[in-house]
């Protein structure tokens, strides 16, 4: 919940480099306990984006010089037009789709692989998993999902892709190196010989706020904290996201009423106050949403919290 907007520093959109699409709304076949927008098979608060709606935004984005496109949900592949949407996007620029890896069909992957081969641009798959065993993953993502996700990764690799496997950090940072090594071993066992990994910080909103304590009142970004800070680490400095309601500030905050900034990309190019707890996580870790190959897409070591937050 926003604290004191009037005391939060406002961030301008310096450059619209990444455009996101909430392509499957909030509909998902899984009900993960740490989902920051509480997606589930029953959550229809945001709807699907249609192919014509996406194409209209791609045209708008081309005029503004957008660099790359990201697709998220919910589970994007529940959208029946997802394959066509990605094929269409690859004519405009690079595309990345964030998926749980449990719902696609082989002929979709074949079509997408063909489309990537014909395009100058990369099609990146980011597959979410939690932990290196069913014991760590399934309590968060649901019974039996670990095996299903691994099968999904295997099918992607067999189809010729080298997916980025993303895991939300639900373990102490001190055990991270060991956890990552185990991840790699697990993925190599299923034939993914050069696994690419991206570890994400947990965002303590939505379902995750129920699971943990959520953000405290002091977990906010202040003007002083931005002194000398590289603003390009903040998603809202160079991204916007399209949902079926309009254009929002970032993929994390679509549930927040103040995140909806306008109907067009140009309307949404306005300053945004960093008044949410999730803004604090974004500030701490940096570039939590983009790929490692993007300009500031590599996550940095978490910024130590200032004294008042310690």
């Amino acid at each position: 919940m926003p604290m004191t907007v009037q005391h939060s520093p406002s961030i301008s959109l310096a450059s619209l480099d990444q455009l996101w699409f909430q392509v499957a709304g909030t509909l998902c076949n899984l009900t993960c306990h740490h989902c920051f927008i509480s997606c589930s098979p029953h959550n229809r608060s945001f709807g699907f984006l249609t192919l014509p709606a996406v194409k209209q935004r791609l045209e708008e984005a081309r005029e503004l010089g957008v660099k790359e496109y990201y697709f998220t949900g919910g589970e994007p592949f529940l959208n029946p037009q997802m394959t066509e949407i990605l094929v269409a996007t690859l004519r405009y620029g690079p595309a990345t789709v964030l998926t749980n890896g449990t719902v696609w069909k082989d002929h979709w992957l074949e079509a997408l692989h063909r489309a990537e081969q014909m395009s100058e641009y990369s099609l990146e798959f980011r597959v979410s998993i939690d932990g290196f065993s069913a014991q760590t993953n399934d309590p968060i993502r649901g019974e039996g999902t670990f095996d299903r996700i691994l099968q999904g990764i295997q099918r992607l690799v067999e189809a010729g892709f080298i997916p980025i496997i993303t895991a939300t950090r639900t373990w102490p940072e001190t055990s991270e190196l060991e956890i990552v090594r185990e991840f790699r071993k697990t993925l190599k066992k299923i034939g993914y010989t050069r696994p690419r990994l991206k570890i994400l910080p947990a965002l303590k909103i939505g379902a995750e706020a129920q699971r943990t304590r959520g953000y405290g009142p002091l977990d906010r970004v202040t003007t002083e904290m931005l002194d000398g800070y590289d603003l390009s680490q903040l998603v809202c400095h160079q991204s916007r996201i399209v949902t079926n309601r309009g254009v929002h500030v970032c993929p994390i905050l679509i549930d927040a009423p103040d995140s909806l900034l306008g109907n067009s990309l140009q309307e949404a190019a306005v300053d945004f106050p960093l008044s949410h707890g999730a803004c604090y996580t974004c500030f701490q870790y940096g570039s939590i949403c983009t790929n490692p190959s993007s300009p500031s897409g590599s996550q940095k070591t978490p910024t130590p919290p200032p004294q008042s937050h310690a």
Partner: peptide, 14 residues
């Protein structure tokens, strides 16, 4: 900033 061929749209370069 990395400007890779496969992740940099023509519109952006323009």
């Amino acid at each position: 900033e990395f400007l890779w061929q496969s992740t940099t749209s023509t519109a952006f370069l323009q």
